[in-house]
């Protein structure tokens, strides 16, 4: 222990150590900031491109019409009351179904159940009054049987008049 030692030398020492740690921290931090950060705003710019590049799975119904497979049904739908109902609403979202169907022909089945129609057309007090709705028990009851809706209505163009 030298008597010449300044009484503040240890203070300097600890603060220099602290400064070194802080500078090291700042440098490490600067290396960890993503490259595209701040490109468009206070966020990682590439995140925007990643979001925009996401795959579309709920396909456009125009694709159904332009394909030879479903042109007929599409044209019927396009003239009928179900024009605003997109194909996927009843048939599901099948953006990649041509390829998938080729791989497994039994993969897709068509829902012909009454419940599918009733999702929209069951009488409900919350539904707008101008919308065509039926009370299931009152609508076409013959001998207690409930035939599928599509035995009378064409699902692609449902009006009967």
């Amino acid at each position: 222990m030298s008597k010449m030692e300044s009484p503040t030398s240890h203070v300097k020492r600890v603060f220099i150590l602290l400064l070194i740690i802080i500078i090291a921290g700042v440098i490490v931090r600067s290396m960890l900031i993503p490259e595209s950060f701040g490109k468009y705003g206070h966020y990682r710019g590439n995140a925007l491109q990643e979001e925009a590049a996401r795959e579309v799975t709920f396909s456009e119904q125009e694709k159904c019409s332009s394909s030879e497979c479903h042109e007929m049904n599409f044209l019927i739908k396009d003239k009928g009351k179900h024009k605003p109902v997109v194909c996927e609403n009843c048939h599901g979202a099948f953006a990649f179904h041509p390829e998938e169907k080729r791989a497994d022909p039994n993969k897709f089945t068509i829902n012909r159940d009454r419940s599918l129609c009733l999702t929209c057309h069951r009488k409900e007090p919350a539904r707008p009054k101008d919308f065509p709705m039926i009370v299931e028990l009152e609508h076409y009851v013959e001998g207690g049987e409930k035939p599928p809706c599509i035995s009378c209505h064409d699902p692609h163009s449902p009006s009967m008049g």
Partner: peptide
């Protein structure tokens, strides 16, 4: 101690 033993 950081190598400093000053207890004056």
């Amino acid at each position: 101690t950081l190598g400093n033993f000053n207890v004056s």
